[in-house]
Measured scan of single mutants.
Amino acid sequence: NDEAKKEAEKLWKNNKSEDEIKERLERAGISPDEAEQWLQELR
């Protein structure tokens, strides 16, 4: 999970869309709710 979150953070810094980041997190096995929460922390 931490690995996926690091990846999400990297994508965020590269200005990827939130949808793309969420999709990537969900593919890594993170629930949509958790993915949404993680994005809010990044904002």
Rank of each mutant, 00 (worst) to 15 (best):
E20C: 13
E18P: 08
K22A: 01
L39E: 02
A8L: 07
K10T: 08
W38N: 01
L25I: 02
L42R: 04
I21D: 00
Q40N: 12
K22Y: 05
Q37W: 06
R43M: 12
K6D: 06
E41T: 05
E9N: 03
L42V: 03
A8S: 01
W38A: 02
E26F: 13
D33G: 08
N14P: 13
N14D: 15
E9Q: 05
K10I: 12
N14W: 05
A35P: 00
K5R: 11
K16H: 14
L11Y: 06
K13Q: 14
K10Y: 10
D2I: 13
E3Y: 10
E9H: 06
N1F: 13
W12N: 14
I21Q: 03
L39Y: 03
I30E: 00
S31T: 08
A4Q: 06
W12F: 14
E36S: 04
R24F: 15
E26T: 13
E7D: 06
E18V: 11
W12R: 13
N1K: 15
I21Y: 04
R24C: 15
I30C: 13
P32V: 07
D2L: 13
E7H: 06
W38C: 00
E23M: 09
E41W: 10
R24H: 15
D2V: 12
D33P: 03
E41F: 06
W38S: 03
W38M: 09
K22T: 02
E34G: 02
L39V: 06
E34Y: 04
Q40D: 11
E7F: 10
A4F: 08
E20H: 03
N1R: 15
E41P: 00
R43W: 05
A4S: 06
W38H: 03
A8Y: 03
W12I: 14
Q40W: 03
E18R: 04
E7K: 03
K22C: 06
E3L: 11
R27A: 12
L42K: 04
E36H: 03
A35R: 02
L39F: 06
A4W: 15
Q40K: 10
R27Y: 06
K10A: 09
L25G: 01
W38P: 00
W12V: 14
S17V: 02
I30A: 04
I21A: 01
G29V: 01
L11S: 07
L25M: 09
E26L: 14
S17K: 07
E7I: 12
K16P: 04
S17A: 05
D33F: 09
E23S: 10
E34F: 05
L25V: 03
N1P: 13
D2T: 11
A35G: 02
L11N: 08
E7P: 01
E7M: 15
E41K: 09
K16I: 15
D33M: 12
E26P: 00
K10M: 12
E3P: 05
E9I: 07
N14L: 10
L42P: 01
W12P: 14
A8D: 04
E20G: 00
D19P: 07
R24Q: 12
R27L: 13
R27Q: 12
A28I: 13
K13F: 11
I21S: 00
R24G: 09
L42M: 08
P32A: 11
G29L: 02
S31L: 07
E3N: 10
E3R: 10
E3H: 09
E34Q: 13
P32Y: 07
I30V: 12
R43A: 08
G29P: 01
K10Q: 12
R43D: 04
D19L: 10
S31W: 03
E3D: 10
P32M: 08
E20L: 05
D2E: 12
A28H: 10
K13S: 09
N15K: 10
K22G: 00
K22M: 11
E20S: 03
L42G: 00
L25H: 00
E3I: 12
D2M: 13
L11P: 00
K16A: 15
R43S: 05
E9R: 09
K13N: 11
S31H: 09
K13D: 14
K10L: 14
E26S: 12
D19W: 10
W12H: 15
R24E: 09
E26A: 13
L25N: 02
A4E: 03
N1S: 12
K5Y: 14
D33E: 13
L25F: 01
A35H: 03
R43C: 07
I30D: 02
K5H: 05
L11D: 15
E9Y: 09
E20V: 05
E7N: 05
E41D: 09
R24W: 15
E20M: 05
E36K: 02
R27H: 07
A8M: 09
I30K: 02
E7Q: 06
E7W: 13
E34H: 04
K13V: 10
R43V: 09
D2P: 08
K5L: 07
E9K: 08
N15G: 15
R43Q: 06
I21M: 02
S17G: 06
Q37S: 10
E36T: 04
A35Y: 09
P32L: 09
L39H: 00
R43L: 09
A28P: 01
K16W: 14
R24D: 06
L39A: 01
E41C: 14
E26Q: 12
D33S: 10
K22W: 04
S31Y: 02
W38R: 00
A28S: 07
I21V: 07
E23F: 00
E34V: 14
N15Q: 06
K10W: 12
E9W: 08
A4L: 15
P32H: 08
Q40H: 11
A35L: 11
Q37D: 08
E20Q: 07
D33L: 11
E9P: 00
L25D: 02
K16M: 14
S31K: 10
E34P: 02
A4P: 04
E36P: 02
D19A: 13
K22V: 05
K16N: 10
K13I: 11
L39T: 00
L39Q: 00
R24V: 15
E41L: 08
E20K: 01
G29C: 00
A35K: 01
L11Q: 07
L39R: 00
N14C: 15
K5I: 05
K10D: 15
K10S: 06
E3F: 10
R27T: 07
N1A: 14
N15S: 07
L11W: 13
E20P: 02
E9A: 05
E9L: 08
E7A: 10
E36W: 06
D33H: 11
G29Q: 03
L39S: 01
K16Q: 08
K5W: 15
N14I: 04
E3S: 08
K10H: 11
R24M: 15
A4I: 12
D19R: 11
E9M: 06
R43T: 05
S17N: 09
E7Y: 11
K6V: 07
A35D: 01
A8T: 02
E34T: 13
N15E: 06
Q37A: 12
L25E: 00
S31N: 08
A28Y: 14
N14V: 03
I21K: 01
P32F: 09
K5M: 06
I21F: 04
Q37R: 12
R27I: 09
I30P: 00
Q40F: 01
D19S: 11
Q40C: 12
S31D: 08
N1T: 13
N14F: 01
A28T: 03
S31C: 13
K13E: 15
I30N: 02
A28D: 06
A4T: 06
E41V: 07
L42Y: 03
E23R: 11
I30S: 02
L42W: 09
E7S: 05
E7L: 15
K16C: 15
K6N: 05
K6Y: 05
E20I: 06
W38D: 00
A35Q: 07
K6P: 01
D2N: 08
G29W: 00
Q37M: 10
D2W: 13
R27N: 08
A35F: 07
L39W: 04
K5P: 01
L42E: 01
N15W: 01
D19I: 09
Q40I: 07
K10V: 09
L11V: 01
E41Q: 10
N15D: 10
I30Y: 07
I21E: 02
Q40R: 08
D33W: 11
K5C: 15
A28R: 11
A4V: 10
E7R: 02
N14H: 04
R24I: 15
L39P: 00
E36A: 07
N1E: 09
K6G: 04
K6I: 07
L42S: 02
D33A: 12
A8N: 03
N14Y: 03
W38Y: 08
S17W: 04
K5D: 02
L42C: 10
L11G: 11
N1D: 09
S17I: 03
W12T: 14
E18H: 09
R43G: 05
E23Q: 10
L11E: 09
P32G: 06
A35W: 06
K5F: 14
N14E: 15
S31F: 03
D19G: 10
K16V: 15
S31P: 12
A4D: 03
E3K: 10
P32C: 04
A28N: 05
Q40S: 10
S17T: 10
L42A: 04
G29Y: 01
D19M: 11
N15C: 15
E36V: 02
K22Q: 03
Q37I: 07
